[in-house]
Design a protein around this nucleic acid. Sequence first.
RNA 1: GGGCGAGUGGUGGAACUGGUAUACACGGGGGACUUAAAAUCCCCUGCCCGCAAGGGCAUGUCGGUUCGAUUCCGACCUCGCCCACCA
Length: 813
Amino acid sequence: MERSYDPSSLEKKWHEQWQDAGLYRTPDSEKERENFMLLTEFPYPSGNLHIGHWYAFALPDMLARYLRMTGRNVLYPIGFDAFGLPAENAAIQRGVHPEAWTRENIATMTEQLRSMGASFDWSRAVSTIDPAYYRWTQWMFLRFFEKGLAYRARTTVNWCPKDKTVLANEQVVDGACDRCGTAVQQQEREQWMLKTTAYAAELASDLQGLDYPESTKAAQRNWIGPSEGAEIIFRLNVPGQDDGKHSVAVFTTRPDTLFGCTYLAVSPELAKKWMDVGWEAPDAVRAYVDDALSRRELERLEREKTGVDSGVAAINPVNGGKVPVWVADYVLGSYGTGAIMAVPAHDERDFEFAEKFGLPVRQVIEPAGGDDSSGGSVYAGEGVLTNSGPYDGLDSAQARTKITAELASKGHGSARTTYRLRDWILSRQRYWGCPIPLISCKECGFVPVPDEQLPVELPPLDDFRPADDGRSPLAKAAGWVKAACPKCGGDAERETDTMDTFVDSSWYFLRYADPDNGGRFAGEDKIGAWLPVPMYVGGAEHNTMHLLYSRFWTRALNGLGLVPFAEPYLARRNHGVILGPDGQKMSKSRGNVIDPDEQVAKYGADTVRMYLAFMAPYEQGGPWDPKGITGVHRFLKRFWAFVHDRWESADGADSEDAAKAVHRANRDIGDDLANLRFNTAVSSAMIMLNALETETKVSRDLLRRMVRILAPMAPHMAEELWRGTLGEHESVHVQKWPEPEEDILREDEYELPVQVNGKLRGRIVVGRTDDERTAVAKALQSPDILRIIGEQSPKKTVFVAGRMLNILVDESH
RNA sequence: GGGCGAGUGGUGGAACUGGUAUACACGGGGGACUUAAAAUCCCCUGCCCGCAAGGGCAUGUCGGUUCGAUUCCGACCUCGCCCACCA
């Protein structure tokens, strides 16, 4: 008796069944099965699962299931990246404790994630807010601290003068506090930093060996931004001080233009440093620096170039020429040395500045061949040196080498590669993050909390706003802050900053290998069994920061001998974004949000999974089409009905076409899933069913095969058919992926398209092993072809076995 | 300004390594079933000419290589994403 397809009851039934049976619990090793951790980016527990989560998890789940069926011991882990600002906002707005809010969200989302029917191993679920997890975050931090990779430095933070609070970057909207609208200022403070730049060169060069999309590699390279050039030292004449007593280093990629330098420009940040060490700067300079430093970087970028003459003069080391030193905020304090040699003739920015302030422009490069010089008065390209004394006539590349070498020999500079990458500012003045396990002692400085006292747990607190002095809310937990110095035993204070949440996600994949280990972040044997990650699937928005931080973190651990590999992820694939039906990003305010729970209620999880797979290439994504999903739903209903109908009536035999249709789908779906081509995998299944529905002879063997190859895509329906209709006892998800049989797929005869002069003119039936001569002979008997070529005999023929035959004749008139 | 990528029917898209362009699906048209609707099923559906057979045109534009180009090369146009006063 045929039952109608009722996804809601059968899906629920199997979720419970799978869970009770521990179907997706993954052992650390299995006989004759290769371990494979298929990693996806663990979610932030916002409290509600959206369609993007389905895209991120349900589709890789198809790959996980396929890999399992083809003999791998697949770990498909899940967890929660659960520290972060929204929990604090909820606490402040609604009076819920951040932890309570977060834990509740985790509970809700766990249920929603289960409804997806993904093959997560929940027994290994990791949550970054568990002290048992962040204990190891702290432990790793201390190892970095001991090695000098974690250090303290002054940097600026966003400061709201009205709320008297430090703001995270995402709390600054158009330069204003997102709560009160007050203009945000910059404030300097001491922060903990991680020395990511120590690994900049390796992080850039080692990309080569990784199986990442080209765009991801480019994003990484771009972010690290290696730039080759030279550091050049200029002696300074500072009024009121001995000439040449001080000096400044500048970074340039164009030492060949050194003779064209007509002034130096230093960043306000560097000028401030000079003042701090005793420079008696003119009032105008002080005013300018104060003003520039109070502005946000974005604002500095947007306005017209400004600056002020510092009164200091610099000596060009290559010719002894004297040039003025200006302070200008178009120079970045955080890049290179914070100072530049300005060459207005060959740099747009310097030219703009020079023009505004009447500074000289001195041309020292002539475009090679003399052809160019089109456009404005600034030639920024390479060429031949002029007005450059002994270097005249050299080309830019030669001059760079020579000038740099001669400067180096006199101690006036050196070749240098500079990176755009900055050190990682780790400190956050926040409650809901991982505490930094250090104690500040007046006598001993910053002292690590002893390992055996880890984790340093977050103290209970009622008010989660940052303290009025801009310190973290933790500063308000007086009892917690007070501590004895682990070194001298004297009165001391705990560090009150917490860590950036990117820390938590920098090593979570390691914990999946050994989530319950109480003695180490993960046992060495477990790490050896599971890591590095062979495949990491995630959103393109994490191609820069998360990926880079995580790569850095792993490299740092590797440097300490704590993990036996430098790169955490051997392969990476990105997925696209699902947009609303209007083609816009989904948002409540636009009213274009597709709620996955509603879709599941209407069509079932299998339909939602398969529609997401079908709608577009995975790396691309695109708009959700409310009509489009019906096509997939119809397919599943037809598949269901087909298997039911045919199971009872099936006798032993298949028609040849039926067997071909199934084995072809068998092969194609396998290839497609293995390569994350989910859209064509679904299409292959549809083609199979379309072909079968008109076939009368379909055997039970063939039906079994059909159900198994559908299992990765529609796990619930496949299980119900397999164990219900087909009467099997073991889950379909522990079955072997069937091998498509070559004998069945091989065609003894096939239709060969025949072209005449490159135009398709007919088809002939040829044997699989027919050679060119046979094919041509057959073609020349075909009326379709004869009609075109008439009496002519072929001038030339091109034959591609299995593909086509092209017959070339003289064009008739 | 730099980097990466994409332009194929009314729509989402398919096409292996240069070899039958438009698979699969949505939408549309027609029909069956039904009192009706939903659901389901069948047929048609790139454009132009033609009753038909058939022919011509078409993968952003223009060129090139080739027996043959959506695919490779060059120039251009358009769009998207990421980065950006990085010296």
